[in-house]
Amino acid sequence: MEIIRFAELKPRPWHTGGVTRALASFPDAAGPGTPQDGGWDWHISIAEVAKAGPYPSFPGMERVLTVVGGELLLLTVDGAEHPLEKYRPFRFAGDADSAGALPTGDIRELNVLTRTGAYKGYTSIIELSKKRAHPVFAGQLGILLQGQATVSAGGGAGAGNGGGDTDAGGGEPLGRYDAVVGSGTGTPEILGRGFLAVVSIDPVAD
């Protein structure tokens, strides 16, 4: 079972005056966190947006943007304004003329980029439960956005990632923005209270 610890990711400067941290990408040709299209077919990151301004262009890519910290991003895409509230994913073309304004202050955003014609990215926001575990399947990434949660290998086996304390149920504790990599064998299951972003990267059929 693989857990990506957000606190261990290297921050890199972001065009909005903040920083970005790459959670995962494929292929990872340019190195994690590179704020340009490094030749990957998909890329998942969390960025801090500290000032208004234009967004970079990603030709040949499709983008799903979700505000996960702060309250509101006023996103302009090809001249049309879109008020993006927290936990409401928004899809748009990576090469669109886009810019963001911050009417309520700084935000954090979850960015999912996929190469058009090769992959399709989806972001869903799930409210967690302490009674029913939420599975993270192969091709998915589960990111804890808010609250307290633990993750265990499928079937309640409680296998961790090799470090850290576990709770009475044998789960591995998750911190804010920690990501669980999905698997088809020993599918990770997340229990807790709060909100989880589930990012799915689906290959596009020929």
Rank of each mutant, 00 (worst) to 15 (best):
residue 72 L to W: 05
residue 124 S to R: 15
residue 40 W to P: 05
residue 120 K to G: 01
residue 114 T to F: 06
residue 135 P to Y: 04
residue 136 V to W: 09
residue 92 F to G: 01
residue 37 D to H: 09
residue 35 P to T: 10
residue 36 Q to T: 15
residue 53 G to Q: 10
residue 66 T to W: 03
residue 98 S to I: 08
residue 130 K to F: 12
residue 134 H to D: 10
residue 94 G to A: 05
residue 33 G to I: 01
residue 98 S to P: 07
residue 128 L to I: 02
residue 141 L to A: 10
residue 138 A to C: 05
residue 64 V to D: 08
residue 43 H to F: 12
residue 68 V to A: 02
residue 142 G to R: 02
residue 39 G to N: 06
residue 83 P to I: 01
residue 65 L to Q: 12
residue 103 P to Y: 07
residue 141 L to P: 07
residue 65 L to E: 09
residue 92 F to R: 00
residue 118 A to D: 11
residue 136 V to N: 03
residue 47 A to P: 00
residue 31 G to N: 11
residue 53 G to A: 10
residue 129 S to K: 02
residue 39 G to F: 10
residue 106 D to P: 00
residue 100 G to V: 08
residue 69 G to I: 07
residue 132 R to I: 14
residue 100 G to Y: 06
residue 133 A to D: 04
residue 59 P to S: 06
residue 128 L to M: 10
residue 110 L to Q: 05
residue 39 G to I: 04
residue 94 G to W: 01
residue 46 I to V: 14
residue 42 W to V: 04
residue 59 P to T: 06
residue 142 G to S: 09
residue 129 S to G: 05
residue 143 I to N: 10
residue 109 E to N: 10
residue 112 V to W: 09
residue 66 T to G: 01
residue 57 S to A: 14
residue 124 S to Q: 15
residue 38 G to E: 04
residue 117 G to K: 07
residue 125 I to E: 03
residue 44 I to V: 15
residue 103 P to Q: 01
residue 140 Q to I: 03
residue 52 A to F: 03
residue 56 P to S: 15
residue 42 W to M: 07
residue 57 S to D: 13
residue 135 P to Q: 07
residue 121 G to W: 03
residue 138 A to S: 14
residue 105 G to A: 08
residue 112 V to I: 05
residue 58 F to D: 04
residue 61 M to S: 06
residue 36 Q to Y: 14
residue 90 F to T: 00
residue 42 W to I: 08
residue 32 P to V: 07
residue 124 S to P: 03
residue 93 A to V: 12
residue 134 H to G: 01
residue 66 T to D: 09
residue 39 G to M: 06
residue 42 W to C: 00
residue 66 T to N: 03
residue 129 S to Q: 08
residue 34 T to Y: 15
residue 52 A to D: 13
residue 80 A to D: 15
residue 45 S to T: 10
residue 55 Y to V: 07
residue 42 W to P: 03
residue 93 A to F: 14
residue 51 K to L: 07
residue 75 L to M: 13
residue 96 A to R: 05
residue 31 G to K: 06
residue 82 H to T: 08
residue 142 G to L: 13
residue 34 T to G: 06
residue 83 P to N: 06
residue 118 A to Q: 11
residue 94 G to K: 11
residue 58 F to Y: 09
residue 35 P to M: 05
residue 126 I to Q: 01
residue 70 G to P: 01
residue 50 A to K: 08
residue 129 S to A: 03
residue 142 G to M: 11
residue 110 L to N: 11
residue 90 F to D: 01
residue 58 F to H: 06
residue 116 T to R: 15
residue 55 Y to W: 15
residue 67 V to R: 02
residue 105 G to D: 03
residue 115 R to W: 09
residue 51 K to G: 13
residue 106 D to Y: 00
residue 38 G to F: 05
residue 73 L to V: 02
residue 142 G to F: 13
residue 122 Y to A: 02
residue 126 I to V: 15
residue 99 A to L: 09
residue 140 Q to Y: 09
residue 40 W to Y: 15
residue 102 L to T: 07
residue 140 Q to C: 04
residue 89 P to H: 08
residue 74 L to K: 07
residue 120 K to D: 14
residue 80 A to W: 14
residue 41 D to S: 13
residue 82 H to D: 08
residue 121 G to N: 12
residue 142 G to W: 14
residue 115 R to L: 00
residue 137 F to D: 14
residue 90 F to E: 10
residue 119 Y to T: 00
